[in-house]
Simulated scan of single mutants.
Amino acid sequence: MESLEGVDFERWVLPLSGGYDSRGILLFIKNTIGTPDNLKAITWGLEKSQGEKDNDAYVAKELASSVGVKHKYYHTDISQEPLEVVFDRFLFCSEGRIDHIAGYMDGMSIWKQLHDEGVDGAIRGDEGFGEFPVSSGLTVRNLVGCGLCSDYKNLSQVINEFGFPPQEMPVELRQKKGEAFYAWRDRLHQEYRIPTVLAALSDIKCSYLEQINPLLSRSVLDAVRSFPDDLRTDKYLLKNIVESMEPSISFAVKAANANPKDILREKECVDLMRSEISSDYSTELFGSGFADRIISGLKVGEDELRRQSMKGLVSSLLPISVKNRLRDTVARPSVDGNVLAFRVFMIIKMHKMLTLDASRMADLQHRAADEARAAIEPELTPSVNIMV
């Protein structure tokens, strides 16, 4: 693969899941330059996920073994550190740009360990081969993570209740005249999702390692942009190519990491979010009443987790076309109350962090100016000779 020329596989790792993208990279390497002896694959997730068939962790290990590459599994189970320390480190590395906390509950231990082991970077599988089927502007925006508050039932209520300004799509991201939904969908994926959502995820790791994305090379994206809608939708062409390659290991249908909603419903997490959101600092940012509104949506406990799991199971069994039709008509989506609270929690914590940084920077600038002034003042003071 062109974009991997010159990569020292001794010092780079390939994150491997049970899906198509990273498998495609592994098999493209194998079929073009052969399987390098020093190529190493890694997978991360909950410790228990390794034994679950159809899980990313299980499938990735089986695939690596079949291809003949070394494989190591890293656990993302909750760190023994205080939860606030784990969240603060995540915010520091992510700059508060994304709320995907599930893969980082180990307190960034995976990435620190890789850095300490001398790993320079990771070969990631971000791609632009095409998104799921869509049926409206609403499903296009939500699919690529570009939804507006007005698209969500509970967010639009909060916006109206507390007088926040309405959101508008930037002109360059709006659907163009004559642009079909499928074309707009994949343009938003490349112009918004990759440089905003996926870049935010990448930058978390870039606190420790470099990254390269071979499937985002110019030649690959130019080819994808020439495909008709049917070859792009749901990555149809990529999936067909990868499925035709050996070994024919089944694909994963379960994620190895914990469900973020499960994490955010743990009592310790709920207590931490409630404390921050109800603080005086929060009131200064958002005004009175806002904290109570957000806190009222918090849920905690196993019963709630089971209800949500059942709801998710039912949703997973519905065809995408049916779910899209429901979203477009009767089932206007809502943001989970605990997810919303976590995002507010992130805003408060990041505001504190950035305000402190700005204050420290101002102090450093004043100190530097004082030192520079002190250094030149003797030269500016005229000498006086007193003759006796």
Results as ranks from 00 to 15, higher is better:
M1N: 02
M1A: 07
G6S: 11
G6N: 13
R11L: 09
R11V: 08
W12V: 04
V13K: 00
S22F: 01
F28A: 08
G34C: 10
D37P: 09
D37G: 10
N38S: 15
L39E: 03
L39M: 12
A41D: 04
T43L: 06
W44Y: 15
W44Q: 03
E47D: 14
E47C: 11
S49W: 03
N55K: 02
A57F: 07
K61C: 11
A64W: 04
S65T: 14
V67C: 05
G68S: 10
K72V: 14
Y73A: 12
Y74I: 08
H75G: 09
I78A: 14
V85C: 05
F87H: 07
D88I: 03
R89E: 08
R89H: 07
L91M: 12
R97Q: 11
D99Y: 12
I101R: 02
A102W: 10
A102V: 06
Y104S: 02
G107K: 00
S109G: 04
I110D: 02
I110K: 08
D116P: 01
V119S: 04
G121C: 04
G125R: 00
F129R: 00
E131D: 15
S136C: 08
G137A: 08
L143F: 13
C146V: 05
N154C: 10
N154E: 11
E161F: 03
P165N: 09
E172I: 12
E172V: 11
L173D: 04
K176T: 06
W184R: 07
R187K: 11
Y192C: 09
I194T: 07
P195G: 08
V197W: 10
A199R: 04
A200N: 07
C206E: 05
A223V: 11
V224D: 05
V224Q: 04
P228V: 11
T233G: 04
K235M: 09
Y236E: 12
Y236I: 02
Y236M: 13
L238Y: 01
S244W: 07
S248E: 05
I249A: 07
V253C: 07
A255D: 06
N257D: 14
K261Q: 13
I263T: 02
R265S: 00
R265A: 00
K267E: 12
E268C: 11
V270W: 02
V270L: 05
M273G: 02
R274C: 05
E276R: 10
I277F: 04
D280I: 14
D280E: 13
L285W: 06
F290V: 15
S309I: 01
G312T: 04
G312H: 10
P319F: 11
K323P: 03
N324R: 09
D328T: 06
T329D: 10
N338R: 00
L340W: 04
R343G: 08
M350S: 08
A358P: 02
R360P: 00
L364P: 00
D370M: 15
A372L: 15
E379I: 05
T381S: 13
T381W: 10
V384D: 03
I386A: 05
